Simulated assay, not measured.
Amino acid sequence: MIVPDGYSDIPAGKVAAVVTHLEMTVRPAPRPDPPGAWTLRRVEMPPLDWFRDLYRRVGEEFLWVSRIRMPDAELAAIIQSSLVEVYALVHDGRDEGLLELDFRIPSECEIVFFGVTAKLVGTGAGRWLMNRALELAWSRPVTRVWLHTCTFDHPGAIAFYQRSGFRAFRRQIEVRDDPRLDDAAPRDVAKHVPVIE
């Protein structure tokens, strides 16, 4: 269904976001690493509690909830797949960034989740993590690396991805239940997305 031009009402209790899909089909020239004391750790067979904790700390402010709501067996089947790689950005001995690469579609890599915790936003850690993500993605025989972001995410996300070499190719509107109304997310997060009951 194509949304008509003009305004469309969103029911109370729902949230709506514009989702932008971005891709690259050629490996970009590497960008310089910013200075910082970060390391990357691959997490083999990620424990679900560990994954959800880091996922929440990175994405809660942006209403990341799909993996919080997902049944354990479904989440385990994804993140513990041999074709999915999960990494943590480590700072001062603590996991402070999340990177999930999905190679389940032949010749493609989807950067499914990417981000750093609030304490590292603006430090260069995101640039450093993206440099590692692209190195890892393009180390496989892929012809396409892609991801998506939405208007709930950091306002600089699209420009950051474009500077990294991605180009937008698709836009969608996502409407879903507001996770702050069913305890999937705390009521006081994502103040840039008002709660309407």
Rank of each mutant, 00 (worst) to 15 (best):
V26R: 10
R104D: 05
E60C: 11
A77I: 03
E74W: 05
Q162R: 10
E60S: 11
F114L: 14
F103G: 00
E135M: 15
F160N: 07
Q162P: 01
H154Y: 13
G115M: 02
R180C: 03
P11M: 06
V86P: 00
D182K: 04
V142F: 12
E108G: 13
I158A: 07
L75N: 05
Q162F: 02
T143F: 08
A17S: 14
R180A: 07
W64D: 02
R31H: 01
D72Y: 12
H91K: 14
I79D: 02
V175C: 10
R171G: 13
A137K: 11
I79T: 04
V19F: 02
P186H: 05
V145A: 00
V189D: 04
E60Q: 10
K119R: 11
L83K: 06
P106D: 15
R42A: 12
L136T: 08
L63W: 09
T25I: 05
V195Q: 07
G165M: 04
H148F: 13
T39Y: 10
A16I: 14
D178N: 08
A17F: 12
I78H: 13
G13F: 09
D183A: 14
V19W: 00
I68N: 04
L98I: 14
A137W: 00
V145F: 02
V195D: 01
K119E: 04
P30V: 15
T149C: 07
D177T: 10
A29N: 10
V3Q: 09
D182C: 10
P106G: 12
